[in-house]
Write a protein that binds this DNA or RNA. Structure first.
Lengths: 125, 125
DNA sequence: GCAAGTACCGAAAAATGATTCGGGTACTGA
DNA sequence: TCAGTACCCGAATCATTTTTCGGTACTTGC
């Protein structure tokens, strides 16, 4: 895990909240966990674009931030599970609002950015 | 401006929304513009931690994404102003929710991460 | 002319974030 | 004991973002 030099911005509530979920996968992970705990392999199955390694790292940070809880089931074979904590669950309204906004406005950005391949955009004037 | 290889993730509404405001300063800029247009120098005055260069780059992206509009006043001396568009304004509820969450939970992370200076944390066990 | 203010912008450096690679452990069932 | 599965991790590498540094251009006031 990276050693965050400036852990979170504690003086600005906005930046604090942002810093907890603005990585590439965290918000998706929180969203996927909304319906119940998932095991790492299951999470990878629902987010196949993220490598297991990334998910592992991000989950670790989420756990460290108290948004997700890890449970190890000692049965055989032992499994680990990640679930939202109450704190993590309290972020869901924000995530819902973002999903909502993205859904309402997706066609706008569709037209704007799906001109062609990732390559050049910037065809103004 | 950096040529985003993958402009925005168009297939996931959550990631789409995120991609528009997950940079270090964008959400702050949107928040600062809520009460009316600001000139670059004014914006720098209210966000002194961000260099004028960064603000410039971020504003440019915000304009390109349609969240902010730029107006050039041709008087002398010519001034430019940046204001929220309707689209940008429609993100404010999300930003409000984040400010809210951050305010409600700041003391939690205060205790957790303000052990000492930005330097080392990582004093587990 | 010259300093000071404002708005820009290019290029490189630095910092941060994400991904890949190559393992390691622990258990299973055969 | 061996392949198979799931989980975990360090380190290097790659990608992206942010910062730094410098510069252009224009206008105002001296």
């Amino acid at each position: 895990m990276y050693e965050r030099k400036i852990p979170v911005d504690l003086d600005c509530p906005l930046r604090l909240t942002m810093s907890l979920m603005d990585s590439k996968w965290k918000s998706c992970i929180l969203d996927e966990l909304r319906n119940g705990a998932l095991r790492p392999s299951e999470l990878h199955r629902v987010l196949p674009e993220a490598t297991p390694r990334v998910l592992d790292l991000q989950l670790k940070e989420l756990v460290e931030d108290g948004l997700v809880a890890k449970t190890i089931h000692a049965e055989l074979p032992p499994h680990s599970e990640y679930a939202l904590t109450e704190l993590g669950r309290s972020l869901l309204p924000i995530i819902d609002a973002m999903i909502d906004w993205g859904t309402r406005n997706s066609d706008l950005f569709e037209r704007k950015y799906r001109k062609r391949e990732p390559e050049n955009r910037d065809e103004r004037s």
